[in-house]
Design a binder for these strands. Structure first.
Ligand SMILES: [Zn+2]
Length: 272
DNA sequence: CCCAAAGCCTGAAGGC
DNA sequence: TGCCTTCAGGCTTTGG
């Protein structure tokens, strides 16, 4: 699943290849994946120069000249792929950006995801972005902010970590690893976390996301970078998707439960 | 063949 | 009653 580190890795790689280049032809394979018709999509974007790419949580905004942006959410399974082929894409490709030069950018397996067109100047007013909380890798993410927000909530800590209106970009994999590093059970209510636990959690959020970025993301089932290479974070994963395995700390069995409707992996012995 | 899984939205239902 | 939080269903496709 592409979460903050994976999406940021995509952003950096794509930026290096395509900023400043003209999008000669855009392609949208499925109308439902956008807020505009397929022909409108192609007409709006074709011929425009890519000026930059911004990340909002797990989304990327491809900003073009003339106040046009394409906002992409990969959701569960979407992947960006760089390609040297100019031929019409197969059915697994929902979006194609053929840039000037030899290289093109494809989006494949965008099942539940989208690529929507907005005016760049109005981007931050759209629902998808307005609802997002702060970015946990930004300087705005202080212990003070974290603490204050926790005070106002009653849900379980796992649910809160996944709440994009609190922190944007954390998904199921990193949430489980953050809680393992902090030694806190996913079921704990945020209201009764001690100060010490809160600061451990704060540190774990920063550490795990930073490690995710450094290792270029987690490949558990399907993630690959634009070149098709897997990330390296999975080698650091201690609990997520490891049910039945032995905890690296205490050799207890990792268990899988449901918290807030989401599959959740943890060590009941190390995480209290 | 059917169910589960993923992230996120919506609307309904439940708690204090 | 109002505010929050949780839950169920839908979207889409793959894989067990
Ligand atoms: Zn353990």
């Amino acid at each position: 699943m592409p979460e903050l580190p994976e999406v940021e890795t995509y952003r950096r790689d794509i930026l290096r290849h395509f900023t400043g280049k003209i999008l000669e032809h855009a392609y949208l394979g499925r109308e439902k994946s956008s807020n505009i018709s397929c022909s409108g999509f192609e007409k709006t974007l074709s011929g425009k120069r890519l000026t930059g790419i911004k990340r909002f949580g797990k989304m990327l905004s491809f900003d073009f000249e003339d106040d046009i942006s394409a906002l992409v959410h990969l959701m569960v399974s979407g992947r960006y792929v760089i390609s040297n082929e100019r031929k019409l894409p197969d059915k697994s490709i929902q979006v194609a950006f053929w840039f000037e030069g030899d290289e093109s950018l494809l989006i494949r397996y965008l099942f539940l995801g989208f690529c929507r067109i907005y005016k760049t100047s109005e981007l931050e007013r759209c629902d998808e972005i307005r609802k997002l909380g702060i970015d946990p890798t930004s300087l705005d993410f202080s212990l003070k902010y974290f603490d204050k927000y926790l005070d106002s909530k009653k849900s379980s800590i796992k649910s809160l970590l996944l709440d994009q209106s609190f922190l944007s970009g954390i998904g199921n994999i990193y949430a489980d690893e953050i809680l393992f590093q902090a030694g806190i059970s996913p079921q704990r209510k945020v209201s009764n976390l001690s100060n010490n636990e809160r600061s451990r959690l704060y540190k774990a959020i920063i550490d795990q996301l930073r490690l995710g970025l450094k290792t270029r993301g987690a490949t558990i089932q399907s993630y690959a970078d634009i070149y098709g290479n897997p990330g390296g974070f999975q080698d650091n994963i201690k609990v997520h998707s490891k049910m039945g395995g032995a905890c690296v700390n205490c050799k207890s069995e990792i268990v899988k439960i449901r918290v807030g409707g989401r599959g959740t992996y943890y060590c009941p012995n190390c995480q209290k």
